[in-house]
Design a protein around this nucleic acid. Structure first.
Lengths: 231, 231
DNA sequence: TTTATTAAGTGTATTTTATACATTTAAAGA
DNA sequence: TCTTTAAATGTATAAAATACACTTAATAAA
């Protein structure tokens, strides 16, 4: 930082949140319909300006809570976007974060207030500014992260079936996985506890529910390199 | 971004560069000794404020060129640091980038002007502000990147020996690699061209020099998962 | 000219991990 | 009791990672 502080331009700094949820075997994004200028009426990521007493992690957390009512959510910084004209009103740089939430947990009332909606990743509307680039990058980071840590569980309810977990990974990696190989791999990670309980909604036979073993889960660092193919 | 623009605080935005070089079988960082306030006389990353007509990628590139004289350098955004008190003079958020340069290429004169020096990663001095956290994060990213793309070549001279390449990877991963397995792996990637020429400085026998095949190199996406152990 | 020294160069066997693939089972509903 | 549906399960093959030690080329010293 070679130049004197006093001569420099000050800028607006914002955060934007790419909010991932998983529902109906699909990855989804929570988007808001802007009821304010600029770009009123168009779809965008939820965002907010950085405040004086917080860092961007905290800002992202606050913004997320404002929309979903949730705290202690998994959040990870993705990238900072800074093209001079990315915001037409005034130069604003934005730090993008992605969040993973259990789609059933959020506060429906708040969502309604913000005219927010869940969109399937495969059917996203056009987004304002550079928000589509943000989503792209978040998706890449999520893919990477899910291959290195058992991050995916953040997106599932507390109890879930093997098939749900598999579908989640399939959605994240955007490829089909053989179910026998998947189960083999997951079991070798030793982060799941099989419950007595069954989920009876998906089939007549019912399928066993699992929880993750919090301690092992937190400790684990793994490479989930689930291959191609088959059902 | 729900709040009106006009009510928001504007902030200083800077970039800081973690500049990696490779020399003498070691990874090194180029640091500057500050001859300006605050923290005059202490070691820090090279940085600079974001200007009106550039994005942070361009700012990092400019800052890097100012210190090294180099352009078209490999640069990658690492993370944005934003704690309210990270800069004691005035709130400044900083976007950290890491750069990979061939340590022989830089402009010695410019380095001298900035009182900059190369430090072995294992013997870094204390750094100002949150610069040590920046270095840590850059190191992690470099490790990851090097395992996924043949990024390491950016740090070597145009012609290099297998052993140099191996030492580079050992420095990045901070672990020893078996040389036979390493060569096997590298050859399977098919990004190198073996030259007739030998480097005679390292041994009596001399060792063959290699170049990378630019096209194959650019095209390749690989997982270099070089194991543990041995000489 | 012989011998010693030094790092370069090379190949194989073993283990681990990833992949491909099909049948049986449990429960409900007809 | 028969049909339907998704759940559950195991093995053989292929690919990748790992462990490991001797020979070679050149120079320098005796």
């Amino acid at each position: 930082m070679q130049n004197k502080y006093s001569e420099q331009t000050r800028l607006l700094v914002a955060v934007d949140c790419i909010i991932f949820g998983f529902d109906n075997d699909e990855l989804k994004l929570l988007l808001i319909k802007r009821d304010f200028e600029p770009e009123r009426g168009r779809w965008s990521l939820m965002g907010g300006f950085l405040q004086n007493d917080e860092n961007t992690d905290q800002a992202a957390s606050r913004v997320l809570q404002k929309l979903t009512g949730l705290h202690d959510v998994y959040l990870e910084q993705v990238n900072t976007f800074s093209n001079p004209n990315r915001d037409p009103v005034e130069r604003t740089i934005s730090v993008a974060y992605y969040a993973l939430i259990n789609i059933l947990d959020h506060d429906k009332e708040l969502i309604k207030q913000h005219s927010a909606e869940w969109f399937s990743l495969t059917e996203l509307p056009n987004l304002i500014f550079d928000h589509e680039a943000m989503v792209q990058m978040a998706m890449h980071r999520l893919r990477y992260k899910a291959s290195v840590e058992p991050i995916g569980f953040e997106l599932l309810p507390e109890k879930f079936t093997m098939r749900q977990l598999q579908k989640l990974y399939e959605a994240i990696q955007n490829q089909e996985i053989d179910k026998r190989n998947f189960i083999k791999k997951i079991n070798s990670l030793n982060v799941l506890v099989k419950l007595e309980e069954k989920d009876m909604t998906s089939s007549k036979k019912g399928s066993f529910l699992y929880q993750f073993d919090k301690e092992k889960y937190d400790a684990s660092k793994f490479l989930l390199n689930v291959g191609t193919l088959d059902s």
